[in-house]
Structure formats: C-alpha cells, structure tokens
Design a protein around this nucleic acid. Structure first.
Lengths: 347, 347
DNA sequence: CTGTTAGCGCATTCAT
DNA sequence: ATGAATGCGCTAACAG
C-alpha cells in the first residue's frame, strides 16, 4: 500500500513550464494546441504514467460512467445471463455496471435504488420485484434526469423504455411444436394471474390450440404460485389422475417442468412417447435432466445487451428519447422430452 | 426526463440566511452547531428533498464507496453465489459493487481492471483468470493505495489477503465419507496439475486413503483438462474398463461427476450400491440429478461476504492491514450417489 | 456556536 | 496557440 501521490495536470504544467489548461487540452489533442506541444505533453504524461483523476472528471462533467443494474435474484441462471450481456455491452462503451439484487422484495429494491441513486449512477437497468407496484423509488431516477430501462419483469405504470421477451410468441411456438409432434391434449401449468409474463404465455398457449382446432379443457390449466419443482410435481399428479388426462404439459418454467418429469418417471409414464413435456427459460437443468427437457430459450444475454445498449444511447444522446418496448424473439430448444418424430430438431 | 436542478448547500444557506459550512455541519449534527439550527436546517432539507451531490462528496473525500469485483465467469453457479454474498455484505456498509468478468482470459481481465481503476473503485475483489500470472494490472491497484483481496482462484505471486476454500479438508472429508460407506477402491478424477485448488483436493484425497490404510493405485487418478461432463464420462469409462476398476469415484467438480453418473447409468451400474460417486462445489445440478449427487459445499455466499467484509475493513481502517489467507471450511452434502448406509445424513 | 476562506483536479470561457 | 481565471459542491482548518 505505497500510496504514491498521483500526478495531476498541475504537476505536468509545472514540469513543462506551461499552463494547466494547455496540458488539459493537449491531452485531448485539442485543435488549438500546437502539434509540438501535444507531442511533448503526451510523451511526458505517458512516461510518468499520468492517469486523470476520475473523481475530479466525474465531478466536473457530472457523470460517472457507471450504470446501475438491479435484478430480483442474482443466483439465477437467466438473470446472471442478462447481467453478463449487460456488463459486456457496457464495457465496450466504457461504462461500468453496479449490480444489486432485490430478492423479490420491495424493501430491498428501494434500498438498492437509493444507494445507487446516491452513488450517482448515470442510469438504471431494472427488472422489478414481485412486490413493486407504484415504483416511486424508480421514478426518483427519472426525476433526476437519469434514464431508466426496464427489462423482463416490468411495470406498465412506469413510463420507461422496456426490453422484454415475446412470451406470447414463445408459448405459441412451443405449443405448436407439441401439436406438430402429434400431442392432442395439451395442458398448461401456468404462473400467477397478476404476472404479465405468465398471462402472455397462457395466451400464446391458448391461441396455438385455437389456431389448430385442438380441444381445450379449462381443467388443464393449473395456476402456480411458488413456481417451484414441488408444484410441478403436484399438478402433474392432479392432471394425470383427472378424468380427462392430457398427453402433454407445457410448463411456465423449467423448474416446474422438472417436477412434472419427476412425477412422470415415478409412475413410469414414458417420455416423450406417452407424454410430452415442454419448459420455458432453457436453464442449465434442461440439458442435464434425462431425457433432455425441451424449452423456450429467452436469450438472456441478448436481453442484457439490448437493455444496456438502449440505456447508453440515451446517456450519450439525450435528445432521442424513445419510450419504446422492445420485444425479443425466443427460440425453441427441442430435446428428448417432446421429440417423438425425428423429422426436425432445433427450429 | 425533468432534469430538476438539484438543491445545493448554498441554496439552503441562502434561504436560511446562514453560511454554507453551518448547513454542512448541521446536516451532520456536528456538536458545535446549536440544536435549534440543526433542527431548522434538517427540516428545510427534508422538506425540499435535499440530496447531497455524491460526485462532489466523493471528489472531496477522494472516495467512491464503490468496490470492484472481477470473476472469471458470471454465468456460473458458484461465482454468482459469491457475488451475491459480496453485494449483500457491501450494501450493509453502504458500498456498491461494480461487477465484471474476465472469461478466464488475461486480456479481458486487464481491460476490466483498467476500467475499474479509472472509474475509481476504492478497492478490488478478484478471482483471477487461468491465464493470469504476473498480474501487473492487479498490482496497479495496490500501487495506488487501493486494497485488493483475492478469492477462490488466487495467485501467490500477488501479495494480497486471500479468501479461499479449504480444498484439502473438503476432499479429505469427502473421501473419508466414501470410506465410511464401505467403499474400498476409490478413484479420483482431478483437475489440472498447475491449478492449486486441484492439487489441494488431490492431496486431501490421498491423505484420506493413507490415514485409513486403503489401497492406492496411481491408475485411479485421472487428470482433466477441460473439466466438463464429457471428460467425466470418458474417464469413468476408462476406469470401469481397467484391470483394477474402482468402486467409487471422487470428482474434481459436479460437472465431471455428472458425466460419470451418465456413463454408469448407461452400463447399468447401480449407484450407490455398486459404485459411489462424489462431486465438488454442490451446484444446483447436484440436487437435480437422480440419484442426487453427494458433493462438497464451498459456501460461495460466505466467501463473498468474507472477502467483502475484509476489504471494507481495510477501507474503513487502513492501518490494520493484515496479509492473511483465510481458509473457509467446507461441508459435505450427502445425497443418494454415495449413501449406502442410512446411518448418517449430512454431517 | 457560526462564518470566512481555501482547495480538491479538472474543463472551459474569456482574454491575449 | 496559450494562459489566467472561474467554478463545479462540498468539507474542514481557522478565525472569531
């Protein structure tokens, strides 16, 4: 911890017997400054390892080159993928990313926002918690002129650009695939009724059935609250033991599908021969289980990149503030749990 | 984007007809200031929603309250757990965390370090890439008086405090458990010879065999390079088809163990009856596979917390700079893949 | 108890 | 083409 005092513009100016402003401008190759001077200053700076004091620069420019990123959960395959994309994108434009998590609790989200706002990020990327409604803490950013981009879990009450996945289309494609594979009685284990993503997926599911003229039984739709493995297991049991059992199940997420698979194995139902299973999110587990779980890939990395790019655009170029919603397309990843015919693999 | 001009100390001072410094001190409840004044200032500030300009404060104090965190890979269960712990810990002390990843490439690590150093983090938490040797880019932090803590993947060439897992002990415990379960011929699929963690685990494995007087066959030790599922599968095949096949396999990591499990299932070897399998890291997959994979939990969250706490201690209290290596203890998580006798569950 | 003053390092406007 | 001067918002040493 040598604590070397850092070289300042003044130091250079004194050494070179020129003024601070000349040094400042020379370092930026300002057109007013003589070639010769620029060369001299730069050489000196290089040689003595001059690094501008970022704190001073930030203060002067009122900008930090830091952006905030808040997700409900950090230890989560999808979100970590998003974070990865956002960070890589930000890095390219010279921005750093401050990461925080809300644990899906409003209180934690508010704290995270406050710390970030106080520590002066230039803008915010956020995927809101389940408990967030009004979002005053998020509006606070906008009030200070700091752009906010919502992604994945969004609120329409907040007037910001949004980057989301086309859940409707993803569900539609997944169910259509099941139909193509010859399944005729397709059930859906869905997410909570108040959650937008869940509703969109449910709509896509229903639309696919309609478009292909397939039977729809309201008893085939089960509503998860916790969205975990256990619920998948329990609902699979319900469905299989009902008077009109389905021959395929489309699940709100891979974890739920995992529970479904577990139950099916337990009662020795053959997958995919007797029953098809489809997940959503394409987590790591989808490729690990046996048989592999077909799933809808949400391209988290791309979502992170897109959101970060959008934010940085605003940051660099405030005027063109577009309050759009970007919907990213999904891709099906077909694995053993739904592939009865070998005629088409990944689409 | 309303871009309200933010209230400054001067604004408050003018409104209240007192001086800026009085306002500044009143806001901090400085003992010199009259109760009455303090009340008045605070009330005004509260009412008009005064927020100190963090940029100015940081500049003045030469401190950002941001710490950097660099990991090889962000989309990785263990590392995201570490990050989670570090962030939660930092938040408690009012620090934000700037996260970046090196993709296990020296070049990316250097860039990440430079950006962070330039953006003035107060200190750095880093788990180095496989390619990092000298680490000049890391020394740069220390040269500027910014403390660095290494964790998990560390280099002894860098003179910083370190937080690591006691790999030796973890391996020793895992192998001892296998012995307790009656396995007598225990193989080890290990990591690269140059990697410290891998060597420690290999040592623990060997010591456990020695201490219990078990047979050791050099052919039972296989060296991974990529450390992936395929290698696990391939080495399991090698081991099982050798002239002296083992009856248990201790793997350098869960992913490798997964490949082992896959091969064993393929040739219908019964787990854990005929063959025991033990992983390392306790990833999500360990509880998902069937049978569940016994594994060594490294307590990533705790590692993140510990590293962050250590860094913040230095930050708040520069004097007591201890250049220690903290070794965190592991815990065994016993699941179906190694449990032949039901006599003891998690230890 | 409060005010005055100086200065952190840099960018920039206005002179020259 | 260069320099002098100013100020960003805040803290703190010093003076009363």
């Amino acid at each position: 911890m040598t604590e070397k005092r850092k070289l300042t513009l003044l130091d250079i100016a004194n050494e070179l017997n020129i003024s601070v402003s000349t040094v400042s401008r020379a370092l930026k190759s300002h057109p007013d400054i003589a070639e010769e001077t620029i060369r001299m200053v730069k050489e000196f700076a290089e040689k003595h390892n001059y690094v501008p004091n970022a704190l001073a620069v930030n203060f002067r420019k009122n900008k930090t080159y830091n952006i905030g990123l808040i997700v409900p959960e950090l230890v989560h395959h999808f979100f970590s993928t998003v974070i990865s994309g956002a960070i890589d994108c930000a890095k390219k434009s010279g921005y750093n990313v401050l990461v925080s998590q809300s644990n899906d609790k409003l209180e934690d989200e508010v704290v995270a926002c406050k710390t970030m706002l106080a520590s002066s990020v230039d803008g915010l990327l956020i995927s809101i918690s389940n408990e967030t409604v009004e979002g005053e803490h998020i509006k606070a950013f906008i009030d200070e002129g700091k752009p906010v981009i919502q992604f994945d879990k969004i609120s329409d009450l907040l007037d910001t650009p949004k980057v989301i996945v086309d859940d409707f289309e993803g569900a539609y494609k997944a169910v259509s695939h099941l139909i193509d594979q010859g399944y005729k009685k397709i059930a859906h284990i869905r997410g909570r009724l108040e959650v937008k993503n869940a509703n969109e997926r449910a709509k896509g599911y229903k639309k696919a059935l309609e478009d292909r003229g397939l039977e729809f039984d309201p008893d085939w739709v089960k509503v998860c609250t916790l969205i975990n493995e256990q619920e998948g297991y329990d609902f699979a049991k319900d469905l299989l033991n009902s008077k009109n059992p389905p021959d395929a199940i489309f699940c709100i997420t891979d974890l739920v599908a995992l529970g479904v698979l577990k139950y099916l194995k337990e009662i020795s139902v053959q997958i995919p021969k007797e029953m098809g299973v489809f997940g959503f999110s394409n987590w790591k587990l989808a490729e690990i289980v046996n048989p592999g779980l077909s799933s809808v890939d949400q391209h988290g990395y791309q979502m992170g990149e897109t959101a970060a790019k959008l934010l940085i655009t605003f940051l660099e170029n405030k005027n063109e503030f577009i309050n759009d919603t970007l919907e990213l397309k999904t891709d099906l990843v077909i694995r053993g749990s739904s592939l009865r015919f070998e005629n088409h693999a990944n689409q």
